[in-house]
């Protein structure tokens, strides 16, 4: 590269930077979750929201979405153009979403039994009551999918159909970097030292899966992605979500890491929730398993074993050409996916 060329590049970059600064100058707050919703149930930090769609699905059970504990569920409704919830509402009349909230010091002693047999169970009951239906269809996402699998195994009569999205089942596949990194962490010491596990530690762990791409590269590319206020807002919504990692209730987190990441509970059939064993063979409901081919957090190899491990005779899987988050924030991808989900639920 000649000096003139370098000067020109520098000038171009500086212009883009200036434009990006102008784009964000008018932004005061970053609004997310634009789809109207109603709070129908709350218990401690947990909230259950109802979304009302225009579609007529008479006789169909409501769809309850169980999101992960480690991130915030508004990724499903980041903005109106690429909202997974809004796209689902084009097909469904009633959607319910669990927001686990932000655990604080008082929630340290919550364990998976509390999350599954108390909170999740109450959400299922609240959904049934609100919709006046005997059973619900459950959609679990990522870690929320793992919780949903446990719940369905323990409370089979309450769930008609189960959908898992980017859900790890085999936590010990060779390409699962997160699992390799978590395997030797002294989780008891971590819980002792911090009580609740700071979201910042988890965020650091997620970023360490692709440090250059998610660090300096993203920062350098940022001005080009913020050339208009709309682009800037869209970029910042995503940034907000990425950095919004709630702290994790200490005992529940310890149990989750030990049971799934370190003991590979589903594969070794050693998952105990409360006083009962949760075995995937107990799941006989129709099962739709969705995973993303370019998922760096939950590789397809971690999700696929559900087919062999579950007791369902009606198993369907969909592999989407996307990343872990792209599944929910790419308008094009989630529009098509919502159609497939609705089709499967009605079938």
């Amino acid at each position: 590269m000649s000096n003139t060329s370098q000067d020109q590049q520098l000038l171009d970059y500086q212009l883009k930077l200036g434009q990006a600064l102008r784009s964000i100058a008018a932004i005061d707050t970053i609004d997310v979750a634009p789809t109207p919703r109603t709070l129908i149930y709350q218990q401690d930090k947990l909230r259950l929201y109802h979304y009302k769609g225009k579609a007529v699905t008479s006789g169909q059970p409501p769809l309850l979405i169980c999101y992960a504990l480690v991130n915030r569920p508004y990724i499903l409704d980041l903005d109106s153009e690429r909202s997974f919830i809004a796209h689902l509402l084009q097909h469904r009349s009633d959607i319910y979403l669990i927001d686990w909230g932000y655990p604080d010091a008082l929630d340290y002693a919550l364990d998976l039994d509390d999350y599954i047999n108390d909170y999740l169970d109450h959400c299922v009951e609240a959904t049934q009551t609100h919709c006046d239906h005997d059973s619900v269809d459950l959609l679990g996402i990522c870690q929320g999918g793992t919780l949903s699998l446990c719940y369905t195994a323990l409370h089979p009569k309450k769930i008609r159909k189960l959908i898992t999205m980017v859900t790890p089942v085999d936590f010990n596949t060779s390409d699962n970097l997160l699992s390799h990194l978590a395997e030797k962490i002294d989780i008891s010491a971590l819980s002792r030292a911090y009580g609740n596990i700071p979201g910042q530690i988890l965020n650091g762990l997620f970023s360490s899966l692709m440090p250059a791409r998610l660090g300096i590269h993203k920062a350098i590319q940022a001005p080009a992605r913020m050339q208009t206020p709309q682009q800037a807002l869209s970029y910042l919504r995503m940034e907000r979500w990425i950095n919004d990692c709630p702290d994790q209730a200490g005992m529940a987190f310890e149990q989750f890491i030990r049971t799934f990441f370190q003991q590979n509970g589903f594969i070794n059939d050693c998952v105990s929730i409360g006083e009962e064993r949760a075995c995937l063979k107990q799941i006989t409901q129709p099962l739709l398993n969705i995973f993303a081919s370019q998922d760096h957090l939950v590789p397809p190899s971690a999700s696929r074993p559900l087919k062999e491990l579950s007791g369902s005779a009606d198993y369907t899987e969909i592999e989407v050409n996307s990343g872990h988050i792209g599944l929910f924030v790419s308008g094009k991808v989630n529009q098509q996916l919502c159609q497939q989900i609705d089709h499967w639920l009605k079938s």
Partner: peptide, 22 residues
């Protein structure tokens, strides 16, 4: 300077108190 100014502003916005409606 400009780059860091942009980064700083992005951080402030992204980490400001939530603008979640509920």
């Amino acid at each position: 300077d400009q780059f860091l100014q942009l980064q700083q502003r992005c951080w402030e916005l992204a980490l400001s108190p939530a603008s979640l409606p509920d």
